[in-house]
């Protein structure tokens, strides 16, 4: 296999060079823009050093959006993993292999759905007056229920949609992982009259520790792409209660004032944070 050949160079160099150019050019450009007072509306700009970055720390909306982003990551990652593990185990225990295949196909649907569509479907389902989800509440209490207009629940509703998209998908993966485990330990503990949940809690889940951590990490990375859901469902509102970092950067750059220099500094902040964090975690996990 280690015969000298030009193949790896021919196959890798152009592709990786192109990827590097496509990824590094905008990143470096963003970095340079973040040191300017550049506005969307005028071609002239000045380099202002670290002023944008200093301003971030006294900007309450930036600080708020950082907190919202962290909340978003925590809620969606834990929610997805809980749903996925629970449902995966349930499918493994309660469904025949045939039924399992059908469930697996069904549970793949949400993640394939364009997020714009998922957002719209659920936004209408949560509509205070006409929504199908809020209908039971309306029928019982006679009052409307406007969860997306309430700062305390809006983020949860959007996170729910995200979990709906990813949790079912991961459940499918987890059931496949469970199927791939050696059957002997499970059989042995069944003979010891262990309850199904005990088997999974003490035996199978610990055996799947490594892939589960990888899955959580993948979800954490994908959760960074919250923008489309939030954009369609709340626009960061009510108030700023669902304004994540990317939503805020977009607002600053395109909706409100056209400050693309300032928006770039938010984006760069996010970029550095995620690259550093995920590189460290990923390398550690995949040791």
């Amino acid at each position: 296999m280690n015969r000298q050949s030009s193949l790896p160079f021919v196959f890798l160099v152009p592709t990786i060079a192109l990827l590097a150019i496509l990824a590094l050019t905008p990143t470096l450009y963003a970095l340079s823009m973040s040191f300017t007072d550049r506005s969307l509306f005028s071609p002239d700009f000045n380099y202002i050093g670290f002023e944008n970055y200093l301003q971030l720390w006294s900007d309450r909306r930036f600080l708020n959006s950082a907190v919202v982003s962290v909340k978003w990551e925590v809620i969606t990652v834990t929610g997805t993993m809980i749903l996925a593990v629970g449902l995966g185990v349930l499918m493994f225990e309660c469904a025949s292999p045939r039924a399992r295949n059908i469930y697996c196909l069904i549970f793949l649907i949400p993640v394939l759905l364009p997020r714009v569509c998922a957002a719209f479907v659920w936004k209408f389902a949560f509509h205070p007056l006409y929504g199908i989800v809020t209908y039971p509440y309306r029928a019982i209490t006679g009052k409307p229920l406007d969860l997306l207009a309430d700062p305390t629940s809006a983020l949860m509703v959007v996170a729910f949609v995200d979990i709906w998209q990813w949790g079912f998908f991961f459940a499918v993966i987890i059931v496949k992982l469970l199927e791939s485990l050696p059957p002997q330990p499970i059989e042995a503990s069944r003979l010891d009259y262990a309850r199904p949940w005990q088997i999974h809690f003490y035996i199978t889940i610990p055996m799947l520790r490594a892939p589960l951590i990888s899955l959580a990490l993948v979800k954490a990375i994908e959760s960074l792409r919250s923008f489309d859901l939030i954009y369609v469902m709340t626009r960061g509102g009510p108030g700023i209660s669902t304004e994540t970092l990317d939503m805020y950067a977009f607002s600053q750059g395109f909706i409100e004032s056209g400050k693309i220099g300032y928006a770039s500094s938010i984006a760069v902040f996010m970029l550095i944070l995620t690259i550093v964090a995920f590189t460290i975690i990923w390398k550690k996990v995949n040791k």
Binding site: P26, M33, D246
Partner: peptide, 24 residues
């Protein structure tokens, strides 16, 4: 390393490349 580099492209927040790409 190349494999990791390719994966790390997924770490890039879209907003961080969207703004500069627009200007470019």
């Amino acid at each position: 390393e190349i494999q990791f580099f390719v994966l790390s492209l997924r770490f890039l927040p879209p907003v961080a490349i969207a703004i500069p790409f627009m200007v470019i």
